[in-house]
Design a protein around this nucleic acid. Sequence first.
DNA 1: TTTGTAGTGTTAATTAATTAACAATGTTTA
DNA 2: TAAACATTGTTAATTAATTAACACTACAAA
Lengths: 210, 210
Amino acid sequence: MNKLPEKTIGRLSEYRRTLLNCLASGKTHIYSHELANLHNITAVQVRRDIMLIGYSTTLKKGYDVKALIDVIGGIIDTKEGLNAAVVGIGNLGKAITAYFNGKRSKLLIKATFDVNPEKINRVISGVKCYAMADLEKVVKDLDISIGILTVPPEEAARVTERLIMSGIKGILNYTSTPLNVSPGVYLEEYDMITSIEKVAYFVKQRKTES
Amino acid sequence: MNKLPEKTIGRLSEYRRTLLNCLASGKTHIYSHELANLHNITAVQVRRDIMLIGYSTTLKKGYDVKALIDVIGGIIDTKEGLNAAVVGIGNLGKAITAYFNGKRSKLLIKATFDVNPEKINRVISGVKCYAMADLEKVVKDLDISIGILTVPPEEAARVTERLIMSGIKGILNYTSTPLNVSPGVYLEEYDMITSIEKVAYFVKQRKTES
DNA sequence: TTTGTAGTGTTAATTAATTAACAATGTTTA
DNA sequence: TAAACATTGTTAATTAATTAACACTACAAA
């Protein structure tokens, strides 16, 4: 089960969400082509991804929704769960915290950090906000292993350094500053401007080609 | 210049931001390996991307920052510019609007939409908020061609339909509902939970392999 | 039963993306 | 000036990701 393609991991996460919705609406089995349609991909890709994680069904009534959720959970989740922290609790930080917490049982945002004294020690979006100055201590005390960066771009590098020194193992960078991290740390970056510009480029293409 | 790889488009957008920073700090030329280091990729990839867009330099002093910015602009931007709208002005919508506007001259968020009467007709994050009910009219009046979705997941499909009917050509979907759109419309989807779960998976890998 | 159908699992082929290799050419240094 | 060097541009090789092809089998219908 080692070495799943990165893209597959992303899709598994998406499948699971869809499967959880199915479960909630009482659907117990789902065909590969149904799952595919819901995600705008092909049934082959769904089957291939599911093959890679070692799940299979003897029935021809589609996959057992509950079983598949559990298998995906076995891949993505850890038994004990992982804790995350959001650093910088502006609009984006708040959006992420509020949106995420409670959605996954094995992954929790346990703390937020900010420099603004008015925010410190308050509960924001359901999570306590700590002083940036206490970052190292809180990360260790609460056993946080994932950092989500929503600070201003000029602080990203410094904060990252501190997070890594505190023992964090994964970083999700929403600032516009590209980061580099030591080899033991996994880094995922996302920038909204790039996404919007990509859309703009393809919109332009459509306009000019017609 | 037709048919640039999708990944290349994303990187060009990122290069441009870095180049703009260089320009602001008075740097006039930049080597491929410098640009590469700033983005944690290889110099070959930078050179290849730049080759694909048809820019080249005779000097061995690196690329001319200003010229390269212009070439990338020629690829991504349209002459007249494009307008965008943010649908659903909660925390995430506000974050995007505030973060984005003013950053790019050829791409503007011209309107936001919401159902909350308290928000309607107010200026939020620097942009006027319109009633969801007026979506079709406003999109046409303001010549908006890109829609950014930050509504609750259960409304995503309906809003998308309305946006497309109004003539929108590109959609950036931040809701957790996967969408499908007609062939003439470009769709880019991003989901935070997937990103966090991906990070969690790789953190887990690091933990168990050591 | 038997036959046809619709679905899964998997290998092989294709396509997309990255990386390596290296020729060409300014630039610097002896 | 000549030699060594650093840097670009580009083709070729490699690797990653997707898609096609198809064998296999449970199920439904005749």
